[in-house]
Design a protein around this nucleic acid. Structure first.
Length: 683
DNA sequence: GTAGGGTTAG
């Protein structure tokens, strides 16, 4: 009866029944303890265990049947704890000492559970020691070892131990194969994984749900969705995890539409096979919606998840926050974040990066500060720091960036590729290439993103020679440049007016490096040709960009070139296209006014200036108009920027003027508001 | 009556 209640998860009822029993033998204790272990309730397990000890003679030997579930409760509580060092290691060590004293460690059950508890509480070395000292090892203890190593990221060690286990004559079961396959999947070792697949297929274990699922994960992570699907279809019964793996494999390979279709199929079959989507499933499919901007469908899923009582699950809420951020609804994202009950480091990182991406630097830092003072006190990780560093980069906030650098070093995160490249980018954008260089010197061998950040940094500082040398060095060490790298390369060419070199790199991108040029790359070269006065070629190059991708940026480049060279006909065409692309902007009128003015066509210039003023507010930070006040003097009128922080506006204006090469700032008021005037030198 | 395995989100 007690066993039945425990098995059906009715822990409270089991406890009442236990308390009502006249005598408590060790079998009853062991049974109830298993219930606490299954519920990851370490406190309850310890309380029960203490009661047993108090009622036993002082030097009575501990029963392995009782001690094992206590360790198990410790292991599962440690595994589900939000905080990695919540003291479970200490509890495990205390119980370990007790187990040694009462000779219970000699039980393979006790020592296996102990090793597992150590490993899950973050004490892998202690777990390995326990394992080495085990008098006898069976398939369960070997599997614990393999899984512990894999979980800690030591996949190759895990696979070595798996081979050792097979060599020692232990017969593997489905648990053992699943553990080995997980190690292969996490390390992306497809050939090794296929070997293990063959081994378990020979025993017919590949259709066991757990094994099939791990196989699907392996193939999905290696990009082979077909094999993943085949593994899932061989399963004896398709469970939630299998569906989730399948959906996730579509998402991971950029096939969000198919992910959503699979989810819909799952719902259709829900009544037949009783596999209902769980929190894992919802977080995956909502992420698919976020990736392709399907806001409406995402909202429906939000409602579905809420109806199933899953919307407050941490991972679901995190996906929802990402969805709303991606769809531009920061307020909705914030609401989901605020309402979620459990917040982990991913929750904080997601909302911080949401504010960061939308340019709300203050809010991002305020949230970071809130996170650090929050009761759950999640430790910042590479994602948190990466987002905050990108905030510093776009605001050129060097001091805050340096503080984050210190924090990264203190937290041992500076060696993460994400942090390193964000630091390089931050130092580069804040004007300190020497600091960027120091960070770059600590790079790992395969860190393409750091190389790219460095190349872009040099390019933006006008250090074209350094940028291009770095690019050649990078290719020399057999690293594959990506599309961002080429933006740096082409920008470098642009800054020194290396037209031929720029054209050569553009040509080599797809032919030699297998990177298809996108509108940004053509835009760089259009700019380069335009500055060199090769307006006709620039116009031709724009023709190579897909029609629906020709945005305001490329037309602005062409128009500016036309204005500088007095190319009225092409200029007019470019201005029309620019107005089509950015109807809210007045840049086209500014450029045309300048063009006409340069030709002495004052009447036409005045007309353009009139149109420009009618447009009113310009989107984005900066100035609306440059009133040429004779000689080289000008006045910019500031019309938009950061409403909440007027101090940033001065920085925005400076960057804007420098970026567009429009002029140098003579004087900017400390606090810029709508309508403030900025005195500047006109180019 | 005791020990080990799979899926997710930035």
């Amino acid at each position: 009866m007690l066993r039945q209640l425990v098995r059906s998860g009715k822990l409270a009822d089991a406890r009442s029944l236990f308390d009502a029993l006249p005598h408590h033998d060790e079998v009853a204790y062991a049974t109830l303890l298993a219930g606490h272990a299954a519920a990851a309730d370490f406190t309850g397990a310890m309380e029960l265990f203490s009661r047993l000890r108090a009622s036993s003679p002082p030097h009575a030997a501990a029963d392995p049947f009782v001690l094992s579930p206590v360790f198990k409760a410790c292991a599962s509580a440690a595994a589900t704890a939000a905080d990695a060092d919540a003291g479970f290691l200490c509890h495990a060590a205390t119980l370990h000492a007790f187990a040694v004293r009462s000779s219970a460690v000699s039980s393979v059950f006790v020592s296996t559970a102990l090793a597992d508890a150590y490993a899950k509480a973050g004490g892998l070395e202690l777990a390995l020691k326990v394992f080495d000292e085990m008098p006898c090892k069976n398939v369960v203890s070997w599997t614990t070892l393999v899984a512990s190593l894999a979980r800690a990221g030591r996949r190759h060690d895990a696979l070595r131990r798996f081979a050792e286990m097979r060599a020692s004559g232990v017969v593997c079961d489905s648990h053992a194969y699943a553990a080995a396959l997980t190690a292969c999947a996490d390390a992306g070792l497809l050939p090794r994984g296929r070997e293990v697949h063959a081994l378990c297929a020979k025993l017919g274990l590949d259709a066991m749900p757990y094994v099939a699922n791990t196989l699907a994960t392996l193939y999905a992570r290696c990009g082979d969705v077909d094999r993943a699907q085949a593994a899932v279809s061989r399963m004896v019964s398709r469970e939630v995890a299998a569906w989730t793996t399948l959906i996730a494999s579509y998402v991971q390979t950029g096939r969000a539409e198919e992910a959503i279709e699979a989810f819909v199929r799952m719902l259709h079959e829900e009544s037949l096979n009783s596999a209902s989507p769980n929190g894992y499933t919802f977080s995956t499919v909502i992420a698919a919606c976020a990736n392709i901007g399907r806001a409406y469908l995402g909202e429906q899923l939000h409602a579905q998840a809420a109806r199933r009582g899953l919307s407050h699950a941490c991972s679901v809420a995190n996906s929802l926050v990402k969805l709303y951020v991606h769809c531009g609804c920061l307020s909705a994202a914030d609401a989901v974040f605020r309402e979620s009950i459990v917040k982990d480091v991913i929750s904080w990182s997601t909302i911080i990066s949401g504010y960061a991406q939308e340019g709300f630097a203050e809010e991002a830092f305020a949230l970071f500060s809130e996170m650090r003072h929050h009761s759950s006190c999640p430790r910042p990780n590479e994602f948190t720091l990466g987002s905050l560093l990108s905030v510093c980069a776009s605001a050129a906030a060097l001091d805050a960036g340096r503080q984050l650098h210190t924090l990264a070093v203190a937290a041992g995160l500076e060696h993460h590729a994400m942090v390193r490249s964000a630091l390089i980018d931050m130092y580069g954008k804040s004007g300190s290439m020497s600091d960027a260089d120091v960070v770059f010197s600590n790079r790992t061998k395969d860190d393409v993103i750091s190389w790219t950040a460095m190349i872009v940094g040099h390019a933006e500082h006008g250090h074209s020679k350094e940028a291009l040398e770095l690019f050649e060095d990078m290719c020399h060490v057999k690293l594959k440049p990506d599309h961002v790298t080429f933006i740096g390369v082409l920008t470098a060419c642009s800054h020194t007016g290396e037209v031929e070199l720029g054209l050569r790199y553009l040509d080599a991108m797809s032919k030699r490096y297998g990177v298809e040029p996108a509108k940004e790359h053509y835009g760089c070269v259009v700019d380069l040709l335009g500055r060199a006065g090769r307006i006709h070629e620039a116009e031709e190059l724009i023709g190579r960009i897909a029609a629906d991708e020709r945005d305001g940026v490329v037309w602005t480049s062409l128009l500016r070139a036309c204005a500088a060279r007095g190319a009225e006909e092409t200029g007019k065409k470019a201005a029309e296209r620019l107005i089509e692309a950015e109807p809210w902007g007045s840049g086209a009128h500014v450029a045309m006014a300048n063009l006409y003015a340069s030709k002495g066509q004052w009447h036409k210039a005045a007309q353009e200036r009139h149109l420009m003023k009618q447009k009113g507010v310009v989107k984005g930070a900066g100035w609306s108009s440059v009133e040429v006040g004779g000689e080289d003097r000008g006045v910019g009128v500031f019309v938009s920027g950061d409403q909440t922080n007027p101090q940033y506006n001065a920085i925005y204006v400076m960057l804007d003027l420098m970026y567009y090469g429009a002029g140098m700032v003579r004087h900017i008021p400390d606090q810029l508001h709508f309508g403030s005037e900025v005195e500047l030198t006109v180019n």
